[in-house]
Amino acid sequence: MFSSLPFGYMFLSVMGIGTLLSVSSIHWLSIWAGLEINLIGFLPMLVYQKSVSESQSAVKYFVIQALGSSFLIFGSLTMFSMSFTWDTCINMFNPSTLGLVMLISGLCIKLGLFPFHYWLPGVMAGLPWVSCLLLATWQKFAPLFLVLCLLELNESYMMAFIFCIISAGSVLIGGLGGLNQTQIRALLAYSSISHLGWMTFAILHSEWTMKMYLMIYILISISLFLSLWYSDSGMMKNISNLKNSSSMQLTVMLLLLSLGGLPPLLGFISKWLVVTISTSGPWMSMIFMLILGSLMSLFYYLSLFFSVFLSNLKKFSLNMFKNNNGLVSMINMLNLTGGVMILMIGLLNSV
């Protein structure tokens, strides 16, 4: 993709500079500027496409991100003009509360969290695989870490309750929205919304758990999106016709199950860490809502897995890994050894 896009690597560098500026800033104005620089670097990779659907997705993404940026700058300026301070501690009787609500809304719009999730499936459904990968991973860095900083500055019950509702709603929407999807890009968009809900809930308990969840999600997403890009599969029915026959089918299905959090695959570790850390926290009751949404997500992944596996049972053989390339074998082994990592973490905690 980048070789066919003029100055593609330059746009990637601009994206990286904007993200680093937002994450390293201590002033809301420079944070907003970094997000805008990141948007300027990402938009040309969406606009420079040949199909109409991809250009439409680029326009939708630009409008939504501009709306989120306007909420962000309006909220920060409102808080400053009301209290003449950049302190964002929440108080229901504080006039700067309106600015903080606008600030949270802007970050949720940029991330695609509940209740501002509506744009993400429509945008991802029309983008190519590499752009979907960047949208699902790299574009989440700056807003997610800004949410982390915001929660560290506002350690109050009301703030934690708001983000608990946002995280539970995101996981439930991610589970319900993917049940009737036939397009893999839209399905992965709803999966991204669900995982963002888990990450937001993890922030309330442990920064380390959120970072581990994000690392595992990025690792699985890179492997899955590159596998689908290599096989060029867009609809559910095309999964059974992957170019690399049984080995690539098994790789994609294992990655989908891992993304859904099926034990003992790698994607289960992140959810297991969040559940473990939340059992000793004040929001233990919310974990049942998150598990319910993840079960719905796992339902359509398992339905897809059994439909593909049973219809192509004769193609699967015990020697598929011998005929496979090294990268695919490494991805499969990394997902299959997730249970071993769980046992090791459990043993270390019990010692």
Score class of each variant (00 low, 15 high):
residue 219 L to P: 01
residue 268 F to T: 12
residue 225 F to D: 04
residue 242 L to E: 11
residue 246 S to D: 07
residue 213 Y to L: 02
residue 192 S to R: 13
residue 259 L to P: 14
residue 251 T to N: 06
residue 198 W to G: 00
residue 272 W to D: 07
residue 196 L to A: 09
residue 204 L to F: 10
residue 201 F to Y: 14
residue 251 T to Y: 01
residue 199 M to I: 13
residue 236 M to K: 07
residue 201 F to D: 03
residue 248 M to H: 14
residue 265 L to Q: 13
residue 212 M to C: 05
residue 212 M to T: 02
residue 270 S to N: 02
residue 192 S to V: 11
residue 235 M to A: 01
residue 251 T to I: 10
residue 214 L to T: 10
residue 236 M to H: 05
residue 227 S to Y: 04
residue 271 K to F: 01
residue 214 L to E: 03
residue 220 I to N: 09
residue 193 I to V: 15
residue 256 L to F: 15
residue 234 G to P: 12
residue 260 G to I: 06
residue 218 I to N: 02
residue 208 W to K: 08
residue 222 I to D: 00
residue 245 S to W: 03
residue 242 L to M: 13
residue 192 S to K: 13
residue 216 I to L: 07
residue 274 V to C: 05
residue 207 E to G: 10
residue 270 S to Y: 09
residue 274 V to E: 07
residue 211 K to P: 00
residue 272 W to S: 10
residue 247 S to H: 11
residue 265 L to D: 11
residue 211 K to H: 06
residue 241 N to D: 15
residue 275 V to A: 10
residue 216 I to Y: 04
residue 206 S to K: 14
residue 196 L to R: 11
residue 264 P to K: 15
residue 202 A to R: 09
residue 253 M to A: 04
residue 237 K to I: 03
residue 200 T to C: 01
residue 235 M to P: 01
residue 213 Y to M: 01
residue 196 L to W: 07
residue 193 I to A: 06
residue 276 T to A: 07
